[in-house]
Nucleic acid binder design. Structure first.
Lengths: 133, 133
DNA sequence: CGCCTTTATATGAACGCTCAACTATAATTG
DNA sequence: CAATTATAGTTGAGCGTTCATATAAAGGCG
């Protein structure tokens, strides 16, 4: 319910699906605001196919550019454009406010700490058991 | 990451998306294994449009049937068929095992209790702040 | 070096979801 | 009681994801 709500919130307020927001966010935090397609897919927890299609759209919108990888002729590097960075900074405040309002703000410090441990645990299991997409 | 993983797991092992699993699950717990479309949509946290399309597919697969509502000529009642119930009981053990393995089993009793409170809190906020789809 | 396997990415069809109409019935109100 | 408004559900187009497949370049290895 939470993830669906947050996706709807982003679509409504920023007109961007949450998965695309995630792509922009991962790129914005990467050195040079750029990542190889495979790394980007891993960072955004997406299949390479999904990322390929997604970058198609994001490039059409002018938020991302493709560049050939210098050392590997198979490789593509996705680079966040200035327009993409602005899109992200415009969408981010509302989104994180929603996350805080629904999830974090109502929790006591004790529950917040517990939630950290719970997420770490689940993350560990996902890392261990998981076929990455 | 969790929801995406669980959806993939269901698609792989049971060949059914998680949202459809959810529909079967909600119907199986309802009295008479049946619900009005709108109630079913609310129970599965889906838009009525999504549910209409979903029931189309589930009916094609023979897992759900549509019946006219007796008291309201606009109404449709979705009924879980025996085949649908079997599909669900076949998919459920693997799915809940995955949920337990990733999320619940690794947690101490204290963290488990905390998680209950955290989920209640988030659920409350979602109920309050939320445009239901 | 030529062959084989692996890795990096793209492509297209099929499927599920969303959004914006649309139809039909029920409820309300002047 | 007609006229309006609200409710229940469907429909179709467009978008995003998946899955299977394709293409091309790297990396072994005999």
């Amino acid at each position: 319910m939470l993830t669906e709500h947050l996706d709807r919130e982003l679509r409504r307020d920023a007109e961007i699906p949450h998965t695309y927001y995630q792509v922009l966010a991962m790129l914005s935090e990467a050195p040079g605001r750029s990542l190889r397609m495979t790394e980007l897919a891993a960072a955004a927890w997406a299949s390479t196919s999904r990322m390929s299609h997604a970058v198609d759209r994001l490039a059409e919108a002018g938020w991302v550019e493709r560049q050939p990888a210098p050392d590997d002729k198979r490789g593509q590097i996705a680079v966040l454009t200035d327009a993409g960075y602005q899109k992200l900074t415009k969408a981010a405040p509302g989104h994180s406010a929603a996350v805080r309002a629904i999830l974090f703000d109502p929790l006591s410090p004790q529950l917040l700490a517990a939630f950290g441990e719970i997420c770490s645990s689940a993350l560990g299991q996902l890392g261990a058991n998981c076929d990455q997409p």
